[in-house]
């Protein structure tokens, strides 16, 4: 009787542990789902999802927002067509970070990496490489969907209006190379 009870408990714990591994592996999916619902990311793909002003105590889009950074986000789906991302670049810190659908940061380009103060990135999927590209950096996404997150350092705030203008210059559009 005791042996049978022990055996059953052990089986339940083993199954529980396997399910736990599943939970951990897909934990980010739940968090992304909450983020997508809150930000509207599930309804606007291959476009600029949002530009944030400086974060404040009412900011609830993401946990631990930085009030020293202005953020912009493009959500993407490059399964069939690449995406072209363009933006002006300020003299201060600026970066664009690419995140795959499991939130891994697979590439980051910052203002020091970009020539002529102007960004042009062809974001391509594994199966959507364009036939030709003109004057730009090609970034290959390991997943069909993901996020491109732009960060701009505000510094002492003196250049805020210029940074806002630069923020508005960000564009994320599907690339047609036909």
């Amino acid at each position: 009787m005791v042996k049978n009870y022990f055996k059953k408990s052990l089986i339940l714990i083993v199954f529980g542990f396997i399910l736990h591994l599943f939970f951990v592996n897909y934990f980010h999916v739940g968090m992304l789902w909450i983020f997508d619902r809150a930000s509207g990311a599930n309804e606007s793909v291959n476009t600029v999802l949002l530009h944030t002003d400086t974060a404040n105590s009412d900011s609830r889009g993401l946990k631990r927002p930085s009030s020293d950074i202005m953020y912009s986000i493009c959500t993407y789906d490059v399964q069939y067509k690449p995406l072209v991302i363009t933006s002006s670049i300020p003299d201060s810190y600026w970066s664009i970070s690419f995140y795959s659908d499991n939130t891994d940061n697979y590439v980051t380009l910052n203002d020091h990496d970009i020539e002529n103060d102007y960004l042009k990135v062809y974001l391509v999927g594994v199966n959507s490489e364009p036939k030709k590209v003109n004057n730009g950096t090609v970034v290959v996404s390991p997943s069909d969907t993901g996020y491109a997150l732009v960060r701009m350092f505000i510094g002492n705030g003196e250049n805020l209006q210029n940074l806002k203008n630069i923020q508005k210059s960000l564009s994320c559009v599907e690339y047609n190379d036909n």
Partner: peptide
């Protein structure tokens, strides 16, 4: 994911 999703590396 519990801390803010999009971390840099």
């Amino acid at each position: 994911s519990t801390q803010g999703l999009f971390a840099l590396s």
